[in-house]
């Protein structure tokens, strides 16, 4: 089964040759060495270029998969932060443990965005088509929403609505990024 495609190609070639070699077409009985050489060189070139294309395509698709995974990790980290904020935002004063949960959630989210940014810089995909600006802007703004004064003492009553707005913006920016990546 492994060589089925080659056997099929050979059988088809013989059949086409037999069909073409009907009168008035005549088949040359001698071997044209120039033609054979051109055929072999052409074939070698085709196979070489095809191999190169396949390798590059495999690298690009691997890089895409890695970037999509990193973007999903960052999105998950932002959702973890959303859950933590939902749990602690009514505390007044915010307990030491809850402050640490917010800080460590922020660190996890910021690290995930940082890793994604570095990975985009290093991969060979068309960086100009991948816009990280919205994700980076949201990273800084989200940090400000979650840690702006009066944090770490408490959160303002309207902070929940602001946080939800930013969580939405963060999610949308990641979805846009993943879709753009998928189109490359």
């Amino acid at each position: 089964m492994k060589h089925l495609q080659w056997v099929t190609a050979l059988v088809l070639g013989i059949a086409v040759g037999a069909l073409v070699a009907q009168p008035p077409v005549s088949v040359q009985r001698t071997i044209d060495l120039d033609g054979v050489a051109s055929l072999i060189v052409g074939l070698a070139l085709f196979l070489g270029l095809n191999l190169l294309y396949q390798q590059r395509s495999a690298v690009a698709s691997g890089e895409k998969a890695i970037l999509i995974k990193l973007a999903n990790d960052a999105l998950d980290a932002s959702q973890g932060l959303d859950t933590t904020f939902g749990r602690v935002h009514k505390e007044n004063p915010i307990s030491q443990g809850s402050q640490e949960d917010i800080y460590s959630g922020l660190q996890r989210y910021n690290n995930a965005v940082h890793t994604l940014e570095r990975s985009v810089e290093r991969c060979k995909l068309a960086k100009s088509k991948l816009d990280l600006a919205a994700i980076l802007r949201n990273r800084e703004e989200y940090r400000a929403v979650l840690t702006e004064t009066p944090f770490p003492i408490k959160y303002d009553p309207e902070s929940y609505r602001r946080q939800q707005g930013h969580q939405l913006a963060v999610s949308e920016a990641f979805v846009d990024f993943i879709l753009a990546l998928n189109r490359l």
Binding site: Q99, E100, I102, Y103, S104, L106, Q107, R143, A144, T147, E148, T149, F151, P152
Partner: peptide, 8 residues
């Protein structure tokens, strides 16, 4: 430290 607020 445990982390920094933007305001700090």
């Amino acid at each position: 430290g445990y982390g920094y607020g933007t305001s700090f």
